[in-house]
Design a protein around this nucleic acid. Sequence first.
DNA 1: AATGCCGGGGC
DNA 2: GCCCCGGCATT
Length: 187
Amino acid sequence: MIEKIDGTNGSWKEGGFTTSSYSSSGYWSWCAPSDLSNPSTPSPPLSTDSCKPFRIPSQTDDGIDEADASDLLFNEPIPRKRKATAPVNIPGSASFTPSSSGFSISWQSPPVTFTGIPASPTHIRTHGFGEHRPQAHAMLSSPPRAAVGLRKSRGEGKKCRKVYGIEHRDMWCTACRWKKACQRFID
DNA sequence: AATGCCGGGGC
DNA sequence: GCCCCGGCATT
Ligand SMILES: [Zn+2]
């Protein structure tokens, strides 16, 4: 019986989180971008739809299959397993803001914006095939070369870590959890 | 400071 | 096999 649930005492540390950092007026304004990129509707008479509760039509894949992150996040009874050694340093977790016209909910620091949804229709997270994205085969003739003048560009860097946040490490993909190459948000 | 990942380590 | 961190490159 070796229980490794001694989470109450693990203290990760990555979450060192610097003190302060967020202030200024709430930045959560993905609710009325006006016409950030509105080539079709330059001036909509009704801008009420500008503020609608974002909702994913379907689950992404192996990200929230566990649950409705929305509920889970607000509840957060328990991550699911593993040691919950998180210092519970959740800054803006579950921020329900009933704005004048509508409401915005936010969680964690980065105002994650659901777009495109980097996942696939197949949702099967048995434990070995949940994350599999053949994506494309563009590797053919590329022998050992291209070395000098080539630095890691780390694409954009919107991986589980930044998207979900260290506070919700349990939601990262396996690879990210182990500090390996992300498998979900393949670059 | 922070993210992302390889290499290395424990079990 | 699963699990994780040290340390590095990069931003
Ligand atoms: Zn990941």
